[in-house]
């Protein structure tokens, strides 16, 4: 109640919008829901724009402060500005925009992911050196089984591992744990969402 008096508009907006959407799962409120969701889609896109502006402002501040990492901030701002101007004016489907995406963004991201392959193997190989308990052993054993059943080892598919063992492990054993995780995640989502919808949590600055 106290916080409601402090920021009644924000809380009212959150509750009204939220409960309207929630009630639309039950009652026929499609028109109203479409209207509100249309606003949210636009505001979310504007929020993305706002986030990028904030990132630029932060690095511009670093650039002005002349710290040791100012060069990195300079590169970030320049690349951001050029990309924004090109893509926003020409559109993402234009060749210039596609060139930026194909030759800068995609190779860098994919390379970062590729480097992770080395890191993952290295970490997994050291796992039992650092920690030897039942769960670490289970982790490593079933990771190896799954990998061994995912493709050919030395050019050959290991009998039964890829056809029988791996599917059973991934769909039954791991599937059971995954189902528990999914239910747990949904319960957590519901609890967190309801706290927002009951104004117990106000992560919008109220």
């Amino acid at each position: 109640m106290k916080s409601f008096m402090k920021s009644p508009v924000s809380i009212s907006v959150a509750l009204a919008g939220g409960w309207l959407i929630l009630l639309a799962y039950i009652f026929d409120l499609d028109a109203l829901r479409t209207q509100v969701l249309g606003w949210v889609v636009l505001v979310a896109a504007a929020g993305l724009l706002l986030g990028v502006l904030n990132l630029a402002a932060v690095h511009f501040g670093k650039l002005r402060s002349g710290t040791r990492n100012a060069l990195y901030s300079f590169l970030l701002i320049i690349s951001m500005f050029i990309t924004f101007v090109v893509v926003a004016t020409l559109g993402p489907g234009h060749e210039a925009s596609q060139w930026i995406f194909t030759n800068i963004q995609l190779p860098v991201e994919a390379s970062l992911m590729a480097v992770m392959a080395v890191t993952l193997v290295f970490a997994a190989a050291r796992l039992l050196s650092r920690r030897t308990d039942l769960f670490a052993i289970l982790f490593v054993v079933f990771a190896v089984i799954t990998l061994a059943g995912s493709g050919p080892l030395l050019g050959f598919n290991i009998p039964l591992v890829g056809d029988v063992l791996r599917p059973w492990v991934t769909q039954v054993l791991a599937g059971a744990g995954a189902r528990g995780i999914l239910i747990g995640v949904s319960l957590g989502t519901i609890a967190t969402g309801l706290r927002v919808l009951l104004a117990a949590d106000k992560p919008y600055g109220a």
């Binding site: 920021s7 508009v9 924000s10 809380i11 907006v13 959150a14 509750l15 009204a16 919008g17 939220g18 409960w19 309207l20 959407i21 929630l22 799962y25 509100v36 969701l37 606003w39 949210v40 505001v43 979310a44 929020g47 189902r179 999914l182 239910i183 995640v185 949904s186 319960l187 989502t189 519901i190 967190t192 969402g193 309801l194 927002v196 919808l197 106000k202 992560p203 919008y204 600055g205 109220a206």
Partner: peptide
């Protein structure tokens, strides 16, 4: 800007709750 943030958060929470119930919790 808090009301605009509140709109995003409130609607996002409702969408997440509704989806979690009808799409994951009950079916699973």
């Amino acid at each position: 800007g808090n009301p605009a943030s509140a709109l995003l958060v409130g609607v996002g929470a409702a969408v997440a709750v509704g989806g979690a119930i009808q799409g994951t919790l009950l079916p699973q």
